[in-house]
Design a protein around this nucleic acid. Structure first.
Lengths: 166, 166
DNA sequence: TATTGTTATACTCTATAACTATA
DNA sequence: TATAGTTATAGAGTATAACAATA
């Protein structure tokens, strides 16, 4: 390297706060991507990821959902949901059966293996989340999740309202 | 089981808070996607989007960046950055010139058209952001951005530290 | 040897369109 | 007519590999 130190190479830490405070889209995209990359480490190897974990957690709390329900909550297309269901069913982590009240629909439930898989990954998921949040205080971590939840719920309510105006 | 009315179809607003509080990956992914969809409305028509706006804003505050600098800040691959630069240069919004201190590198600067484009879209970007944030109080909106900025900076510092350990 | 920009190529993710069986 | 699941296909976005110029 040079001794007299030429023009300083712009550093990430120098540019980021100055340029992007207020740029919510960037901050959200970057945060999501950073976390996604770190979450990959938890699941490395078996071809499943944090999305599969989230769906199994959803089914853990409430079984018998239709694929369209899962699609709505996860904000996925029907066909994308189909693919994810195939991946999970192919590994024996959930099962599709006939819905008792609508024979067009599937009723999706966890299998015992699915419950075990979720339980086996749960601690590492939570650890990785906390590691990702380590630059925030405990209070800030809770607050962040509350704010995000408010936003997601707010968007959903607003879109429902718009839809009912038709 | 239910009495008379058929089993209630699980509502988004019913499932979301119960199942996903604590699922940071889901909340971040969902929030980012919701905002991205709403931001599309601002740019509909010209093939550019919020990412282009962010890059032009970065260059507005600090010109003469290399493509690798932009790639680092935006967390993009070199080749992806290349494509985005082509899109912006093709519309005359930025220009590539020889870097004065490293002849391998490009120095990227806004053109006048680029400055105008950014200015023309700025108000609608900010409006859409505020609309997206409308379920939060003003204080919460500021706080959210601060928390996200802390997280992104924290991840960056941690990765740099890891890297220097090699 | 390593880095910058570039090109060509491959891969991943997701959505669109069309079909079937039910409602 | 509309909806749930399914399948095949196409598109967007991104990364990998290789090369030339320069450090």
């Amino acid at each position: 390297m040079t001794s007299i130190s030429p023009a300083p190479r712009p550093l990430f830490s120098e540019l980021l706060p100055a340029e992007f405070t207020g740029n919510l889209s960037f901050l959200l995209a970057r945060t999501r991507q950073d976390l996604a990359e770190e979450m990959d480490a938890v699941f490395d190897g078996d071809g499943l990821g944090i999305r599969h974990y989230a769906i199994l957690s959803l089914l853990f709390r409430r079984g018998g959902l239709r694929q369209t329900d899962i699609a709505a909550v996860m904000s996925l297309d029907r066909t994308t949901t189909m693919k994810v269901m195939d991946e999970l069913e192919g590994r024996g982590l959930l099962q599709r059966s006939r819905h008792s009240e609508d024979r067009r629909a599937n009723a999706i439930d966890l299998t015992e293996a699915g419950r075990a898989w979720r339980e086996r990954h749960m601690n590492r998921v939570l650890e990785q989340e906390q590691r990702f949040l380590s630059s925030l205080t405990p209070g800030e971590r809770t607050l962040l999740q509350e704010l995000l939840l408010k936003l997601v719920s707010g968007v959903h309510q607003r879109r429902n309202a718009d839809h009912h105006e038709d």
